[in-house]
Amino acid sequence: MFNRASALALLQYGDSAYPAGGFAFSWGIEGLAADGWLADAAALDGLIADHLSFRWSSMDRPLLCRAYAAETLDAVATVDRLAEAMTPSAQLRDGSHRAGKALLGIAVRLGGPLSVSYRPYVSADVRLGHLPIIQALAFRDAGLDLAAAQLLSGWTLVTGLVSAAVRLGSIGHVKAQQALSAARPVLADLLEMDLPIDLQPSSFTPLIDIAVTRGPSRHVRMFAT
C-alpha cells in the first residue's frame, strides 16, 4: 500500500535543497571530467551505474543496513569503525566523514533523538561519522523504514553525481533528467536484490578512486571529492 507519510519524507530528505552539504562532493565526477573520462552523457550513465553497483550497493548499503539494525549506539560505532577500516583512500575517508558530519549536524538541529545521542560519539572519535552510518541514524529519526532508507541513500548519491556533472558543465539540464531516468532502473534492480546477512562491505571502482585521490594535486577544484 502506498505510504503517503513515507513518500513525503523521501521527497523532503531527497530534495537537493535539503541542507546537508551534499553539493560540496562530486565523488570523483570532477576528477574524471578533468581527465577526459566524462566526454558525454553515456559516459556519465556508465559512471553512475558503476558507482551504484560496485561501491554503493556493496559498501555503503551494507554499512547502512548494519547501522540501521544496530540495537545500541555502541554497536553503531562498531559499524562506523568498520567503514573507516574498509575505506583505504584517505580522500574518500575524509569525504565520507565530512558528508556524514554535515548530515549529522542538520539532523541534530532538527532534533532527531538518535542523531543527538550519537553526536558525542563522533565528537570523541575522529574515526566516526561516516556518511552511510549517519544516513542510517538520520533516516531512522525521520521515520523511514529500512527499505526507504536504502532507497534514499542510493538516490541521493545519484542526484549528487548528476548535479556535479551539471555544475561542471559536462551536461545540461535536459541531459541531467535523462541521466536520472537512466539511473532509476539500475538502482531499483539493486534494491530488489537482498543483501546476504554476512556480506562484508567492499568496493571496486579503481577509476573513481584514482580520480578522487588525485584531487589534492589539482590546481583548481570545485568539490571536496
Rank of each mutant, 00 (worst) to 15 (best):
F23P: 11
G28Y: 05
R119A: 15
R4E: 08
W27D: 02
Q135E: 15
W56Y: 12
A17F: 02
S117K: 12
L47H: 15
N3V: 06
R55K: 15
L187V: 08
D94C: 11
L103Y: 03
V166S: 02
L191T: 00
A70R: 04
V108Q: 00
A183H: 07
S58E: 12
G143Q: 07
I48L: 09
I210M: 04
R66E: 06
L104I: 02
S26A: 14
E71Q: 07
A188Q: 11
P120S: 07
S26N: 11
I106E: 09
F139H: 14
V162G: 05
R167A: 14
G169S: 01
A33E: 08
A5F: 03
L191H: 00
D141G: 05
A224W: 08
L114G: 13
L128T: 08
I171W: 00
A77T: 05
L10Y: 03
R127E: 13
L128G: 07
P19L: 06
L190E: 01
P113T: 02
A188F: 10
R184V: 02
W37N: 14
S163I: 09
A211E: 00
Q12C: 11
A7Y: 06
P196T: 00
S57N: 11
A179M: 06
E71Y: 02
S53W: 13
D198Q: 13
D80H: 06
L92A: 11
Q200I: 14
L10H: 03
D145E: 13
A138Q: 11
Y13A: 01
F23A: 15
L64E: 01
R93V: 04
D189Y: 13
Q150P: 10
E30A: 06
D60S: 08
Q150G: 15
L44D: 04
H219L: 15
R55S: 15
S170G: 07
L52I: 03
E192T: 09
A102P: 03
S57T: 10
A17D: 04
H97D: 10
E84C: 11
F54I: 12
G111D: 00
P62S: 03
A17K: 02
V174N: 14
L114I: 05
D125P: 09
E71H: 01
G21A: 02
S96F: 05
P196H: 00
L131C: 11
T72F: 00
G105V: 04
A224E: 10
